[in-house]
Simulated scan of single mutants.
Amino acid sequence: MFGTTLLDRRSKPERIADQAWEQLLSAVSSAGDSVRDVARSARRNGSGLADDATDLVGTAADEARRRASLAVDALAGRRPALPWSMLIAAALAGAALGWAAGTAARAAGSRLRELDEIEFVDVDRPDSPVGLDD
């Protein structure tokens, strides 16, 4: 009760200053929360970018190692190994295309034989205007 009467007796500029101080504290507090949220999201995004950069650098390092190994082999006079997996894949693809082409050719050939076996029948037309039936 004593506090309420004390606050009531302050002057208007003091009350306005207190309200402004409370609003300032509230704004600073909410700004701190939003800054904390932004920092948290930046940390998450930054770690994602760092992971992507690490993957990219790792890939580049692997490629550099592979090329260096090929260069050392070339300088030593060793020939590169045959890419057996590529050769086998090409052979299988060629066999599949050959089988498909052969099947299509057989189907087209059987259709042509069916067309050759069509029998044409001559029909007499009694009232032909052209006179082809004579």
Rank of each mutant, 00 (worst) to 15 (best):
M1N: 07
M1H: 14
F2Q: 12
G3R: 15
T4R: 09
T4D: 11
L6A: 08
L7N: 14
L7G: 04
D8K: 15
R9W: 06
R9M: 07
R9A: 11
R9P: 00
P13I: 04
P13D: 05
P13H: 11
E14Q: 04
E14M: 10
E14W: 01
I16K: 09
A17T: 06
Q19F: 07
Q19A: 14
W21N: 06
W21D: 05
W21L: 10
Q23M: 08
Q23L: 09
L24I: 05
V28I: 09
S29R: 05
S29K: 02
S29T: 08
A31S: 12
A31I: 06
A31V: 01
G32M: 04
D33L: 14
D33G: 04
S34N: 10
V35L: 05
V35Q: 12
D37V: 13
V38A: 14
V38D: 13
A39H: 01
R40Y: 13
R40L: 05
S41F: 14
A42L: 02
A42I: 07
A42K: 02
A42P: 00
R43A: 10
R43V: 05
R43S: 08
R44K: 14
G46V: 01
S47V: 02
L49P: 00
L49Q: 13
L49E: 13
A50W: 09
D51S: 12
D51H: 13
D52V: 02
T54R: 15
T54A: 15
D55P: 00
D55I: 03
L56C: 05
V57D: 14
V57N: 14
G58F: 00
T59R: 13
T59E: 15
A60L: 13
A60G: 02
A61C: 07
A64L: 13
R67V: 02
R67K: 11
R67Q: 13
R67P: 00
L70R: 08
L70V: 04
V72W: 10
D73E: 08
A74T: 06
A76P: 00
A76D: 15
G77A: 02
G77P: 02
R78D: 03
R78F: 10
P80H: 06
P80K: 07
P80E: 12
P80Y: 08
A81F: 04
A81K: 11
L82C: 01
L82N: 05
W84D: 09
W84N: 04
S85E: 10
M86W: 05
L87S: 12
L87F: 11
I88N: 05
A90S: 11
A90I: 02
A91D: 09
L92N: 04
A93P: 03
G94M: 09
G94I: 12
A95E: 14
L97F: 10
G98V: 10
G98A: 15
A100Y: 15
A101H: 02
G102P: 00
A104P: 00
A104V: 03
A104C: 06
R106A: 14
A107I: 00
A107H: 08
G109N: 06
S110G: 02
R111Q: 12
L112R: 13
L112C: 00
L112H: 11
R113N: 13
L115C: 00
D116M: 12
E117I: 01
I118R: 15
E119F: 05
E119Y: 03
F120S: 12
F120K: 07
F120T: 09
V121M: 06
D122M: 09
D122P: 01
V123R: 11
D124K: 10
R125L: 11
P126I: 01
V130Y: 13
V130T: 11
G131H: 04
L132G: 08
L132T: 04
D134F: 08
